[in-house]
């Protein structure tokens, strides 16, 4: 067997190739997300798994759908970007634990019983909530795709992302470069629901605690 001696920091050519391909692929996905224009329908981006919706997010999904209908007359268009079938899809990887396309985990937790259901509360305005309540455009599909896109951008680092470490938690604030939601709640109501381009994601490792549109 031929033995090739390598330097301590010389990567395997195959690993180097795979790494390069991952970087290029991530860049393409993020670039495509940024270039997409809001479209009239998010129906093409149904999740692979239907179980998360049934078990954790059915009510919130319904709420999201009605929000899209309602808000479209307020500040159109309130729809998810098109052609995002890859992002925001979920597959079950454990007991009631779901992994998104971008690698985020949604697990049981919160007063709602599941972090997915908790995040999907941000697909509908809550005008009586004190302070701000960020609302995603595009209902369930739009929300999960946007969170995935923001996470991919956050992992790349750079000027579009602010990162704050708070103990075990990482808080990302990511500029997606286009309107992805609006400010609701009592503050949003007073300010006539301004559109926002930023998403805040609160994580413990890759476990999603919460995510919502935010005015930075």
């Amino acid at each position: 067997m031929k033995h090739i001696k390598r330097g301590a920091f010389s990567p395997n050519p195959l690993a180097k190739g795979v790494l390069l391909a991952c970087i290029v692929l991530t860049g393409i996905i993020v670039q495509r997300y940024r270039q997409e224009r809001p479209g009239p329908s998010a129906a093409s981006s149904k999740p692979i798994a239907s179980k998360p919706v049934d078990k954790a997010g059915a009510e919130a999904e319904n709420a999201g759908a009605s929000t899209t209908d309602r808000s479209s007359s307020v500040d159109a268009p309130h729809s998810a970007p098109r052609k995002l079938a890859q992002l925001g899809q979920l597959r079950e990887v454990g007991a009631d634990v779901y992994l998104s396309t971008a690698g985020l985990r949604y697990s049981p937790g919160s007063r709602e019983g599941h972090r997915l259901k908790h995040v999907l509360l941000h697909t509908k305005d809550q005008p009586g909530r004190p302070g701000s309540h960020g609302v995603f455009l595009g209902g369930r599909d739009g929300a999960l795709a946007t969170v995935d896109a923001a996470y991919l951008i956050a992992k790349q680092g750079g000027d579009h992302t602010q990162v704050e470490q708070q103990g075990v938690r990482t808080v990302y604030t990511v500029d997606l470069g286009k309107a992805i939601g609006y400010v609701g709640g009592q503050i949003g109501k007073r300010r006539e629901h301004p559109r926002v381009t930023h998403v805040r994601i609160v994580l413990e490792g890759t476990n999603v605690i919460t995510a919502f549109p935010v005015s930075p």
Binding site: R111, E112, L121, Q126, P127, G128, R129, P130
Partner: peptide
């Protein structure tokens, strides 16, 4: 005093 997240729904 106000609605907590989700309680309004």
């Amino acid at each position: 005093e106000g609605w907590a997240l989700g309680d309004e729904l």
